[in-house]
């Protein structure tokens, strides 16, 4: 569902506002944060989806990295995870074992532990996790804190939705999309550590609503606006080739209400690149607003370490009518 649809449904439901709940469901926050004591809160999240690659262990790794990411996006540390499995009757259980093995591998890498799970029968394979972590409420990175003048940092390239569609169509093989597969398998933990050392105003991760959709949630929650510099946004290899062949998945944010607050002012940018800014991502990178003085050093650290293609892709502004403006290139 698009963020607009979701918003509409949530508006119709009673909202349980208890003082211990530090996040608002209405902000499109990545995970729920519940205060346990003055210095300790639990962070909870859940995510699952059908296979996007053929190799089962790789799918397990991607699904786990994707679920763990929401904890990192809040500045938290994952502790426990529960597997969620939908499995077609009669399908080879050896495949499931491989998926779970891949998932476990990533959970262990994150320093967390799998404590159980739940499975149901379904027509289509689905796998994912519910993850619980902890965060110091003082150091939590909410989606809402972005300030005008902040620089926007993105830690992974875009294009996983387009490449996964091309893979499904047989136009690329898994060998052609190694960069994207490695990126989807990579935990956002090390990038989150780098962000937390610098200190960020706001943070989220880029997933199903695409870069523009998640950025829209961030600036709306912070009552600010933003410019994206299209030429600065890193894309995976082959993404534009495949978009040109019609391999773009449903751009859910473009069909949502939020799209009304987006202005495309990029006459020199390939429309396919603009489309890619809306491409739904699986296990996408972290998107953070950081003080302008910190951005350069942060990018240096990210590129030398866990995120070789991290980039400053725009800045937070104070517009009101237009929340997200897409420009051709950098304009400070």
């Amino acid at each position: 569902m698009g963020p607009g649809d979701l918003e509409q449904i949530l508006q119709g439901l009673p909202y349980d506002d208890v003082p211990e709940l530090l996040t608002s469901v209405r902000d499109g926050e990545d995970a729920g944060v519940y205060l346990l004591s003055e210095r300790l809160a639990i962070v909870q999240t859940v995510d699952f989806f059908p296979p996007i690659v053929d190799d089962p262990a790789t799918f397990g790794r991607i699904a786990a990295a994707n679920a763990l990411s929401d904890i990192y996006a809040m500045g938290g540390r994952p502790l426990t995870a529960m597997n969620l499995v939908a499995w077609p009757c009669g399908l080879d259980l050896g495949v499931l074992e491989e998926i779970l093995r891949g998932g476990r591998e990533k959970v262990r890498e994150a320093g967390a532990v799998i404590v159980g799970g739940h499975s149901i029968e379904d027509d289509e394979i689905k796998y994912g996790m519910s993850v619980t972590g902890v965060v110091d409420p003082e150091r939590m990175t909410a989606i809402s804190g972005a300030r005008p003048g902040d620089m926007l940092v993105l830690t992974k390239p875009l294009g996983t939705g387009i490449l996964a569609t091309a893979l499904k169509a047989g136009l690329v093989g898994e060998a052609d999309m190694n960069e994207a597969i490695d990126s989807m398998c990579a935990l956002n933990g090390p990038a989150a550590d780098a962000l937390s050392r610098v200190g960020v105003s706001a943070c989220t991760d880029v997933t199903g609503f695409g870069l523009v959709g998640h950025l829209y949630s961030m600036v709306r929650a912070g009552a600010v606006a933003t410019d994206i510099w299209a030429s600065e946004v890193p894309l995976f290899e082959r993404t534009i080739d495949m978009a040109a062949l019609g391999m773009v998945p449903e751009l859910r944010f473009k069909e949502s209400e939020g799209f009304g607050s987006v202005e495309v002012a990029a006459p020199r940018t390939d429309p396919l690149v603009v489309d890619t800014l809306f491409d739904p991502q699986t296990s996408g990178g972290l998107l953070a607003a950081v003080a302008p003085g910190d951005a350069e050093a942060l990018i240096g650290e990210l590129r030398a370490g866990p995120c070789p293609r991290a980039a400053v892709i725009g800045k937070i502004t104070d517009g009101l009518e237009v929340r997200v403006r897409i420009l051709d290139r950098r304009r400070d």
């Binding site: 040109a244 062949l245 449903e250």
Partner: peptide
């Protein structure tokens, strides 16, 4: 019957 398919068929045909 959906905008995603419309846009993709157009992208492919133009390319």
């Amino acid at each position: 019957d959906n905008p995603a398919a419309r846009d993709n068929v157009r992208r492919f045909a133009q390319t």
